[in-house]
Design a protein around this nucleic acid. Structure first.
Lengths: 245, 245
DNA sequence: GATGTCTTTATGTCAAGACAAAGGCTTGAC
DNA sequence: GTCAAGCCTTTGTCTTGACATAAAGACATC
């Protein structure tokens, strides 16, 4: 029954449950809370920290949803026995790489308005005849090409002509004009590289590629981006954590 | 501002928030709640149904976490504009296929105890020298081979010798001995088929395969299963829904 | 010695209320 | 006519309190 030391700051604008969740997560990642450890029960923890039980419970729920803790009624809450993995998050690949200490850069292969085809209209739920941005980019790390990225974005979402996409990530640009991404559906598959992809990625034609198609929605539920990316299979995998309720 | 009709049954053993969440989800899937619709605010909904606001909020949270609804402070809660997709869940592929109306069958290629190697020991967090089940299976639908599956399971988790794995799914078998899966880490990638895989899957050597490695944990946080599966890329993709909090 | 029942412990569910903060709209001043 | 201030709506956060239910162990009984 491990009892991590947690300090809360009621003057902070960060929510209390969030402060607790962060410190619990840090305790797990530093090994302060070891895999298999049972943490103090919710009621006692809440009392110790001067919090109400729902608040404490919400903090724990954050980590349960992340797959770091498991709850069992009548028993307690324990740390999952797995090593910490960084799952796919709703951030751009660019930001992922930057955080990982890599030095990604991006070359714009093409960016122009285009009349949307049937499939695009359906995915983005926009009226027939709509015009969208058609953006092709190549992402690399150092000298190594990593991914060929194709994005489709409704014209009224953002004016890409005013954005320097060689230097600014797409998601970063969208955030800067007040678009908050909330939900994304992704479909991950694999196939052979065609001639164009092989050339861009420095692979042979027919090499296995990891494919990812994404539809992203903002906080008003509107579809704001379509992504259709292919990755060199030897350079990229996707991590996913599933939690059963 | 759409106001779905919801009935709650206080005598049911199903939690109230769960009843509401289910009916809301059904309203969305039937189109009763259309994409883009704003639903009645939490306070009014709770009052109408005779529930407290936290309970109503919990119900909505279920659907927000599933990516069906988005909330925006000061504005309201809206239905996401995307078509409904069935994401990867913590069920076996076998059950997924059965639900989809397919007729999957499984052939056991090999199942025997084996001393665990370094990597397995680390992933399962078990002491050096431990013995594990080493299970190889081929999954098909109709005449079409679909996946080559390799699982590793600690000996003390379940006695596979007493299970008819040609007829019973692995997860089903584990549930029947009281093991409740709660969390899984999955890593999805791609590579070329080797000779053995190509033969089993009816593909050419070098064909692109979708790979999935999974570590699954039970409700006590213990690692109980390792999966290392390869899928024919033309027959399988993975759906994932990401939600930003 | 095996089985069943009670007690303890901890999470699961639910209620009622309060204040904070963000977004959007209206109103008013300049 | 434009911009800013203020108001209203709605979700976000937090508190206190209560009862239900599953798991595990202790205990008594057969």
């Amino acid at each position: 029954m491990s009892h991590p030391s947690i300090r809360i700051d009621r003057s902070s604008r960060l929510p209390l449950y969030s402060q607790v969740a962060e410190q619990l997560e840090r305790a797990i990642s530093t090994g302060d809370l070891a895999p298999g450890d049972r943490i103090t029960n919710e009621v006692a923890l809440a009392a110790d920290l001067g919090l109400s039980r729902p608040t404490m419970r919400q903090a724990i729920s954050v980590l349960v949803d992340k797959g770091l803790l498991v709850r069992k009624r009548g028993v307690g809450t324990q740390v999952v026995q797995g090593q910490i993995r960084r799952p796919v998050e709703l951030t751009s690949l660019n930001e992922d790489l930057q955080r990982a200490g890599q030095d990604p850069h991006t070359r714009v292969l093409g960016c122009r308005p285009l009349e949307a085809d049937e499939h695009t209209l359906a995915e983005l739920q926009i009226p027939s005849g709509s015009v969208v941005w058609d953006l092709h980019r190549l992402r690399s790390v150092g000298d190594e090409p990593l991914a060929v990225m194709h994005n489709v974005i409704p014209l009224d979402v953002i004016d890409l002509a005013t954005v320097d996409l060689d230097r600014v990530g797409l998601y970063e640009a969208m955030r800067s004009v007040g678009i908050h991404l909330r939900v994304a559906h992704q479909r991950i598959g694999a196939r052979r590289a065609d001639a164009r992809e092989a050339g861009l990625l420095g692979e042979h034609r027919g090499a296995p590629l990891l494919t990812m198609s994404r539809t992203a929605f903002d906080d008003a539920g509107r579809a704001v981006e379509l992504g259709n990316h292919v990755y060199r299979a030897d350079r990229q995998t996707f991590e996913v954590t599933l939690v059963d309720r």
